[in-house]
Structure formats: structure tokens, C-alpha cells
Nucleic acid binder design. Structure first.
Lengths: 113, 113
DNA sequence: CCTACAAATGAACACCTGTTCATATGTACG
DNA sequence: CGTACATATGAACAGGTGTTCATTTGTAGG
């Protein structure tokens, strides 16, 4: 009741803070290494070591990226013994990635000079 | 016939080049200013000047960003007299943005320390 | 042709971010 | 407890990127 908020069905233009927050999420997927890490654990939980091995990266680097991804709830972590398994947080992530892949596969109307 | 490509239904792990290309697309949406520009012309074509005015940005800056977005087929340009109208290229873009908004709105499982 | 307006371009600067290396935390097991 | 393994963290460097300012291109009209 304090703020009329739920009244606006679809805010045509997002508040700048929200836009910045949204941009932060996209930026996380905007790095090739980090995106490959996400792709590596998109379908099933994978331990950090295996991600690093599969992608040919140092465990340190993978861990750094995973922290950012986890903080943004793009991936979820679960400990199992000494290992920590990471997986895509939810279906939104999978859908977004899939949609962007489709977009990439689409024929461009005309090349930009 | 040169490359067996269409045979693999769903490449579980993308080739590194494709991953980099995909990351480039995400990175474009990963800047707050650029994302706001996309949001501004997400539902209907808008001339550059109006985008700049609505967002309180210089025409130069908006133009720079629009060039990148156009090169990636995220937005489409159409000239009408002296003005150039920009709009989201297709529904993929709209869907991706919408999905990411939903993701942002979701409750986080637990805050990251 | 020349003025006025809208958009695009290029160069230069300031800032941010990914990576590496070294070190620390945490967990299992003898 | 001490070793070994897996992951996490911190600091520092290098490279990329958004922004601004000045200039140019393109379009319409007198």
C-alpha cells in the first residue's frame, strides 16, 4: 500500500537502477570464458575440477568466475565431499542461452559495412 | 557435404568460436546505457534523437551504441526522411530481455557473502 | 548552391575487468 | 594431528571498452 507498484502492468521503460541490474546479468554471460563455464554445467551438475579440465582452464580462474555467476544466481553450488558441483540455477538461464543461440543462427538481413 | 554439421542435433558443448560469438551478443546487452537504448526501442521504432532525449544522452553516444547493436542484428534501422528509426530486430531479443527480467525478479535462494 | 537539421564517424582519454600467481580455507583419510 | 586433494580468495598487472569532443556525411528545403 505504501507504493503503487503492482498497479502498473508493464513498465514500458525500466527504472535506471533496474536496467543497470539487468545489464549486470547480461554482462556475466558476455565473457567467452565465463559463458563456456556456464555452458559446461548447463545440463547437469559438474565439479569445478572437471569444468577446468574440460575447458583447459586453471581451477583458480574457474573458481573466480563461478563466484560471480553464483552471486547472480546464474549457477547453483552443491557440495559433495571434497568436490563442489555447479549447475545452471534454473530454466531461465537455459532458455536465455538457447534463445540467444537461435538468434545467432538466424540469417542476417545484411552485413554491416 | 564438406563438413558434417547438421548431423549433430544438439551440440552439448559449443565450439569455442561459437561460444565467443555468443558471448559477444550477451556483452552488447551487458552495458547499462546500451541496454537502456535497446529497451527504449523494444516495442516500437524510435528515431535516434528521441532515444537520446528520453534517456538524457548525447546523440553521438547513442549513435555509437546503435552501430554496435545494428552490427549484431539486435536492432534494425530504417530511414524516414532526415530521421533514422531503430527497433528491436526480432522477437528473440524481446524474449531474451523478458526472460532475464523474470530471472532478476526471482527470489534468490540465499545471499552470497 | 547554401543553410539547417539529424545522424554517423574518428581519435583520445579514463576506467573497469579478466587473468595470473601465490596463498588460504575446507574436507577426507591414515 | 598431518598429509593430500579440491576449491576459494587476494593482490596486481594488462588489455579492452564506454564516453566525450570535434568533425563529417546525408537529407530536406529556400
Amino acid at each position: 500500500m505504501t507504493k503503487i507498484h503492482a498497479l502498473r502492468p508493464r513498465p514500458r521503460t525500466l527504472s535506471d537502477d533496474h536496467a543497470a541490474e539487468l545489464a549486470d546479468l547480461f554482462r556475466l554471460l558476455g565473457d567467452a570464458t565465463r559463458l563456456r563455464i556456464v555452458l559446461a554445467c548447463l545440463e547437469a551438475p559438474v565439479p569445478v575440477g572437471e569444468i577446468a579440465a574440460r575447458l583447459g582452464l586453471s581451477g583458480s580462474l574457474v573458481s573466480h568466475h563461478l563466484r560471480l555467476l553464483r552471486a547472480a544466481s546464474i549457477v547453483r553450488a552443491e557440495r559433495q565431499g571434497k568436490q563442489v558441483f555447479y549447475a545452471a540455477a534454473d530454466d531461465h538461464v537455459r532458455r536465455i542461452v538457447a534463445d540467444m543461440m537461435e538468434h545467432m543462427a538466424e540469417p542476417k538481413s545484411e552485413e554491416d559495412a
